[in-house]
C-alpha cells in the first residue's frame, strides 16, 4: 500500500486531458446536430417537428449512463464489430449534446418574437437569410447563458465515461483510489478538479444572464 502522492496528482491531471478531449469532441460533432435539431423543431412543416419531438422525448427519457452502455456494449455486439471505446463514448455524448443543446437553442429561437420573422420577410429575403441575419443573432444572445450552463452539464456528464472503462478524470480517480486505498482523499481531489473547471463557467453563465436581463 502506498500513499497518495504527487505522482497520483500528475496521473489525474493527465487524465483530465481526456475529459477535455471528450468535451471538445462532443461539442465538435454535437453542435451542428444541435443546430439542425433546433431548426427542425421550429420548422413550419409538421413532419420534421414531430420527428424531432419524438427523438427528443426518447433521448431525454434515457439516462446518459444507459446511452453510453448501449453504444459501448449493446451496439457492437449486435453489429458484430469492434468499436473503439473513444468512438462509442463520443457517439453517446454527441447525441446527448445534440438533443439537450438543440432544445436550449430551440427555446432561444422561439423567444425571438414572431414579428421579427415577419419584419425580415417583408424585406424580401429568403427564409434562411431571415434566420441567419435577423433571428439567429438575437436567439444566440438569449440562449448563451443556458448554453454555458449546458457546458457544465456536459463536463460533469463526461465522468460517466469512466463506467465503460474510458480513462478520463473520474476513471483515473478510481484507479488511483484502488492503488492507494484512500478513496475519500482521491475522490475529494477529483471533485475539486471538476469544481475548479465548472464553477467559473457557472459564474460566467450567471453573469451573462444578469447582463441579459439588465439590457431588456
Amino acid at each position: 500500500m502506498r500513499q497518495f502522492s504527487m505522482i497520483d496528482f500528475v496521473a489525474l491531471t493527465t487524465a483530465l486531458q481526456y475529459t477535455v478531449l471528450l468535451v471538445i469532441l462532443a461539442l465538435a460533432f454535437g453542435t451542428p446536430l444541435a443546430l439542425l435539431m433546433a431548426l427542425l423543431r421550429t420548422s413550419r412543416a409538421a413532419i420534421p417537428r414531430w420527428a424531432t419531438a419524438f427523438v427528443l422525448q426518447l433521448v431525454q427519457g434515457i439516462p446518459l449512463l444507459a446511452l453510453l452502455m448501449f453504444f459501448y456494449f449493446g451496439l457492437p455486439v449486435f453489429l458484430g464489430v469492434q468499436i473503439p471505446p473513444l468512438v462509442a463514448v463520443t457517439v453517446a455524448f454527441t447525441i446527448y449534446t445534440a438533443v439537450f443543446l438543440g432544445e436550449i437553442w430551440r427555446g432561444g429561437i422561439e423567444a425571438v418574437k414572431q414579428t421579427q420573422w415577419e419584419a425580415a420577410a417583408s424585406l424580401g429575403i429568403s427564409r434562411w437569410q431571415q434566420f441567419r441575419y435577423v433571428i439567429a443573432p438575437q436567439a444566440m444572445k438569449i440562449a448563451l447563458p443556458a448554453t454555458v450552463g449546458f457546458l457544465v452539464q456536459l463536463i460533469k456528464g463526461t465522468s460517466l465515461a469512466a463506467v465503460v472503462g474510458f480513462v478520463e478524470l473520474t476513471r483515473a480517480g478510481q484507479l488511483v483510489s484502488a492503488a492507494t486505498f484512500q478513496p475519500l482523499l482521491v475522490y475529494s481531489v477529483v471533485a475539486a478538479v471538476y469544481f475548479a473547471i465548472c464553477f467559473p463557467l457557472t459564474l460566467w453563465s450567471r453573469n451573462l444572464e444578469a447582463r441579459l436581463n439588465g439590457s431588456r
Partner: peptide
Amino acid sequence: EVIRNTPPLIQIFIVFF
C-alpha cells in the same frame, strides 16, 4: 455550488466512502 459543479457520480462515491 459544490453539488451543482461536481459530477453526481463522484458525489455518490464520496458519500459511499
